[in-house]
């Protein structure tokens, strides 16, 4: 199920990349640049579904691609389209459940997915509400609370969308770090500065929850 990991990295990285994927004996590619996947709406949705079910995937990052078309489908739109009505067989379901079990406690970002016609937006909203209520989110519980098979499919699709688009992240911020943070540190992108920023944000969140 590591095609989800590759897609997430490609999207979060925000660099031009080509994802090669193989299903059976056929290898295809999908290009990503400028926050979007190359191709028409239907082509991209179809290819992303193939990526989900690929036997193997590989990402090549480069700035040296020659795009075949200028059409780009913005990542949230592309993932929404690929997941619209998407169902899976028993093998795929088992892979997705196994993937879900490996996710640590999470933080959840609220993003206007409804503007990109994400069909499972209400389930995503409930997921965010659970996170807001509890202060952390466990995907395992969320999926296992499904009322029926159809509901489980919806919740797994929400897991896929939020994971791939970077709307969930592990809740492992170093909460007790106590470094002096200057204004310039907050604005710089250095990893150390980001760690301090996550520490500060986590502490403020804890405090506001207790108000």
């Amino acid at each position: 199920m590591n095609s989800l990991v590759y897609l997430r990295r490609m999207i979060i990285n925000q660099k031009p990349a080509r994802l090669d994927y193989t299903k059976g004996s056929v290898t295809k590619s999908i290009y990503y640049e400028r926050a979007g996947f190359e191709g028409s709406h239907n082509e991209v949705a179809q290819k992303l579904r193939e990526v989900f079910e690929a036997d193997s995937v590989n990402v090549v990052t480069s700035t040296d691609f020659n795009p075949l078309t200028s059409k780009r489908i913005f990542a949230p739109q592309a993932i929404s389209s690929a997941l619209a009505g998407y169902t899976f067989n028993a093998e795929m379901r088992a892979s997705l459940l196994s993937f879900t079990m490996r996710l640590p406690p999470l933080i959840v970002r609220l993003y206007p997915m409804q503007r990109y016609a994400f069909q499972d937006n209400s389930a995503y909203m409930k997921m965010h509400m659970q996170y807001q209520h509890n202060g952390s989110f466990r995907m395992q519980s969320y999926v296992s609370q499904a009322e029926n098979t159809r509901d489980e499919i919806v919740r797994l699709r929400v897991m896929m969308a939020t994971y791939i688009l970077g709307l969930i992240a592990p809740m492992n911020a170093p909460r007790n770090e106590n470094h002096q943070v200057t204004q310039s540190m907050l604005q710089r992108n250095a990893p150390q500065s980001r760690k301090r920023k996550t520490s500060i944000l986590s502490r403020i969140i804890d405090r506001i929850r207790g108000l």
Binding site: V108, Y111, Q132, L167, A169, P170, N172, T198
Partner: peptide
Amino acid sequence: LGNALVEAQA
């Protein structure tokens, strides 16, 4: 703040 935290973590 939650959104900012996810962005920072990612």
